[in-house]
Structure formats: structure tokens, C-alpha cells
Design a protein around this nucleic acid. Structure first.
Length: 228
DNA sequence: CTACCGATCCCCT
DNA sequence: GGGGATCGGTAGA
């Protein structure tokens, strides 16, 4: 199975993946740091899912940063609870939660041990294992670029759920973060905007532009507000 | 294309 | 007991 995806050759995300070396697990330093910094850093890196269906690879094209108890949009705002324990743990772990009673969302825990922080994976661009992604999607007729264009769609396409809560994304054989040797996403090609669906946090926190995306990607969950 | 709405259940107050 | 870091179907412009 190769990394060359996009049969049409029109998907910017797949084109990014075309210049690649072998997949290498990312270093722990990548996920250690402030959520906002890690959120930007994770753009362009790969999420790899290895299971009975084979290997699925997807490029992270959209992220959001969530901080600790001071961040009124973060699940950590209630402090350390049964659900958010992982957010206070070491960086590189998966924080997976259920929203609206039916959708899962995947986060990469960051910051440092003892501090809470996480990066929500809001969208990924399929690179390989597309049939497997389709098989696990609730709406399999989507165009390839839209198969994982959203946080819950990402979890569907990669078959991620609460079973994966707490696993180590730096070393787990079934779900891990990888680099293919591509360049980091340069600031000029990075979109910035307010986080989605967090109005409950109040203007102070909902107004923070902690959502990041790769400009031109066909796999964004939704457009970024203009004036970015 | 945009707008609305129901689904569905775990978590925290 | 209230509401949500969403999605997908349907209705209407």
C-alpha cells in the first residue's frame, strides 16, 4: 500500500503527501508544549491507523487548541474529573470523548505532565486506506476529501472511539502520529480562526483564534471566517 | 446553496 | 436535570 492517494490528482492534501519518505513516529518533543503551539505544529503530520482492515493514513489539516482550567471552552474547565484525567496526563496521549451522545472526537494531549492541554483533531485528509475509511463511515458516498472533514468524521473514518482514550499516540501500534519527512506548514499557508461551537465559553474565550488549518485543503471541516 | 432540526447519552452541577 | 469541541437528512430559496 503506497501513500500516493488521490486518483484525480487534484487534492492539495494528497499532493503534499506525494513527496514522502517512510513513516516515522513523531518525536515526543512535537507534542510537548503550549496547546496553541502544538496545534500549529501538528498540521501536516500524519495519523496512522493499523487494524484488521489494514493501514489507514491521513494528513492532519485542521486543529484546535484547548488549554487548562482557565480556558472556559475546554473540558478541563471543571478541573480534573473522571472524563478529563487524560488531559492532565503526559503529552502524546489520546483524549477521546463522546459528544451529543453519538459522536467521538480525538485529541492529542499536550502541555506538560500536571498541566492540562489538548489539541482537537478537527479534520484529516485521507492519504491511504481509503476503502477502509469508507467502510467505517456512516455516509460512505462522500468524496474522498470529505470522508474525514470533521472531528467526528475523523473518528468514524479511522474507527476511533472511547476504547482509544488514554493510549499513547507516540508508541501505540494501532493508532499513532507519524511524519513523512515533509516540511512544516509555513505560516503564510496557515489559516487561523476562532474555535468552532464554543460560544458557551463566553466572548473572552470563544473569541480566541485557536483554530488552525492548511490553506487550500479540500478537507477542512468548514470554511474559516474571512479576514482571517 | 443555506437553514433548521432530531438523534442520543455521558458528564457534571 | 441540562446541555453539549457534531452530523446528516430534509426543506426551501
Amino acid at each position: 500500500m503506497t501513500l500516493a492517494a488521490d486518483p484525480a490528482g487534484t487534492d492539495l492534501d494528497a499532493q503534499r503527501g506525494r513527496r514522502h519518505g517512510p513513516l516515522v513516529a513523531i518525536a515526543s518533543g512535537v507534542v510537548a508544549g503550549e496547546p496553541v503551539v502544538v496545534a500549529r505544529r501538528l498540521l501536516g503530520t500524519l495519523l496512522v491507523r493499523d487494524d484488521r482492515r489494514g493501514r489507514r493514513v491521513a494528513r492532519i489539516v485542521e486543529t484546535e487548541a484547548y488549554a487548562g482550567p482557565e480556558d472556559m471552552a475546554s473540558h478541563a474547565r471543571a478541573g480534573r474529573t473522571a472524563r478529563t484525567t487524560v488531559m492532565f496526563g503526559p503529552p502524546g496521549r489520546a483524549y477521546v470523548y463522546l459528544v451529543y451522545g453519538m459522536h467521538h472526537c480525538l485529541n492529542v494531549v499536550c502541555a506538560t505532565d500536571g498541566e492540562a492541554g489538548a489539541v482537537l483533531i478537527r479534520a484529516v485528509a485521507p492519504v491511504a486506506g481509503i476503502e477502509a475509511m469508507r467502510a467505517d463511515r456512516r455516509r460512505p458516498t462522500d468524496a474522498v476529501a470529505r470522508l474525514a472533514a470533521g472531528p467526528a468524521r475523523t473518528c468514524q473514518a479511522l474507527d476511533v472511539d472511547r476504547r482509544h482514550d488514554g493510549l499513547d499516540l507516540l508508541s501505540d501500534p494501532s493508532l499513532w502520529l507519524a511524519s513523512d519527512g515533509g516540511d512544516p506548514v509555513p505560516a503564510p499557508t496557515m489559516l487561523v480562526g476562532p474555535r468552532v461551537g464554543v460560544d458557551y465559553a463566553g466572548p473572552e474565550w470563544a473569541g480566541r483564534r485557536w483554530r488552525f488549518g492548511i490553506a487550500g485543503s479540500a478537507s477542512l471541516s468548514r470554511p474559516f471566517p474571512v479576514g482571517g
